[in-house]
């Protein structure tokens, strides 16, 4: 059963007032503007045993996403297509408010929002992922782990997911006469076929002011947020209002315009980090 959450970590009223007043003036504690992201670091290939991976740092929020490819049976309604399964876990290491156990509603919501955006946009070309049509296909498992929580877990996770998918390569497979599939994990054939790139842009609202990429302190004062999935061709690939408040029609349209503008440039940033990993921090953003 879903219930009104406790504040978790109480933000002192004085601090909350300061944050709100600054946002209303268009400035934020870190010096950035209302439509600026925090600095983004992407390290692709962070996990050698994954078929694709990325460690993403968004400000002080750290998320690792990994892709594992397995050979499996297709869904009955899409016999000649691969399948996608997205899961997210908020690790107890990431915050004193996270507890071990099965994913809670926030983790489930996050995973499903990212899953839907990829699925509805047909971001991955599933038709190229059949190995033995009708019988054996690639199942793509995207697992997202939040390692350090300083706000805006959805966007950090979506950046990590896109980066990990762009980093994923298909291993060599051999199919014998009786249709058995043998995978050669050590021989990489081609990148995962990608049709479209997509990221989420989270627009937060406090007292009629809209701003993006809330950090944890800011999340403590916002009324609600709109998570907007933006495709590389400037379409809206999903929306999720999340949080206990509401928005007016005008606020929603304004949030969309902010998201579309920000999302497209965010995708470009990610592409450059993934294609030229040296631009990101080369080895280890954890503990550096």
């Amino acid at each position: 059963m879903s219930h009104t959450p406790s504040p978790g970590i109480i933000t002192p009223k004085l601090k909350a007032n300061t944050i709100v007043n600054m946002i209303k003036k268009g400035i934020r504690s870190s010096g950035r503007g209302l439509t600026d992201y925090r600095p983004i670091d992407v390290v692709v290939g962070y996990v050698q045993n994954a078929d694709g991976s990325a460690l993403v740092r968004l400000g002080n929020t750290v998320v690792v996403a990994g892709v594992k490819l397995e050979v499996g049976s297709p869904y009955p309604d899409t016999p000649n297509e691969g399948a996608l399964i997205v899961n997210a876990e908020f690790m107890p290491a990431a915050s004193p408010t996270f507890e071990p156990g099965p994913p809670d509603e926030n983790a489930i919501e996050l995973a499903r929002v990212i899953d839907r955006a990829l699925r509805e946009l047909k971001a991955i070309d599933m038709s190229k992922l059949a190995i033995v049509p009708g019988r054996r296909v690639w199942i793509i498992y995207v697992d997202i782990y939040v390692l350090d929580h300083d706000g805006n877990l959805v966007d950090a996770s979506s950046i990590a997911t896109l980066s990990a998918l762009l980093n994923t390569t298909l291993p060599k497979v051999e199919v014998d006469e009786s249709g058995n599939v043998r995978v050669e994990k050590n021989i990489r054939m081609s990148p995962l076929p990608i049709n479209h790139k997509v990221v989420t842009v989270t627009v937060a609202k406090v007292e009629n002011v809209l701003f993006i990429d809330p950090d944890l302190d800011e999340e403590g004062v916002i009324e609600t947020k709109l998570v907007i999935a933006v495709s590389d061709d400037s379409r809206i690939a999903g929306i999720q209002k999340s949080g206990s408040g509401g928005l007016t029609e005008a606020e929603i349209l304004a949030a969309l315009d902010i998201a579309l503008k920000t999302g497209v440039s965010l995708i470009k940033t990610i592409e450059s980090r993934v294609l030229e990993p040296t631009l990101g921090l080369s080895t280890n953003t954890l503990g550096q």
């Binding site: 509805e120 379409r235 999720q240 209002k241």
Partner: peptide, 12 residues
């Protein structure tokens, strides 16, 4: 507006 979800792709 207190609930808004979009499952699918739309232009602005």
């Amino acid at each position: 507006i207190t609930l808004l979800q979009l499952n699918g792709v739309l232009s602005r």
